[in-house]
Design a protein around this nucleic acid. Structure first.
Length: 107
DNA sequence: ATCTTGACAATTG
DNA sequence: GCAATTGCCAAGA
């Protein structure tokens, strides 16, 4: 067993996990990390998403921080994430996580 | 191998 | 609500 699998696998795991998030749902970095089997490496999720190519087809915009807000700079139309989420019918704010948080159960 | 950084999380003041 | 602090884990220099 490899307590520390190759970075390649880690990134792939994260991408797969994020790709499994159904449309109109949200997941926190910590949740994705846990679902991906990374435990508390929530930061690794952000790093993986940052390395993510634009044509990867990964719905990275469904990943938000524990506060239920976008971790990227810019509010409103400046932030692609918020635009995409709004396009899917997801509006961030108080209770957004309670409303759209993904259980981790396969869609 | 060591130090710093980071699209985080939780706690405390 | 915000700033500072601590914890966690891996990547990058």
């Amino acid at each position: 067993m490899r307590p520390t699998p190759p970075a390649n696998d880690i990134d792939e795991r994260i991408w797969v996990t994020v790709a499994a998030i159904p449309s109109g749902c949200l997941a926190t970095y910590g949740d994705v990390a846990r679902l991906a089997g990374l435990g508390r490496a929530a930061r690794r999720v952000g790093a993986a998403l940052r390395r993510l190519p634009t044509d990867s087809g990964i719905p990275w915009h469904r990943v938000v921080n524990a506060s239920g807000r976008s971790s990227l700079p810019g509010d409103g139309d400046d932030n692609r994430q918020l635009r995409r989420l709004r396009d899917e019918g997801v509006r961030l704010g108080p209770g957004a996580l309670a409303r759209y948080r993904w259980d981790g159960v396969a869609p």
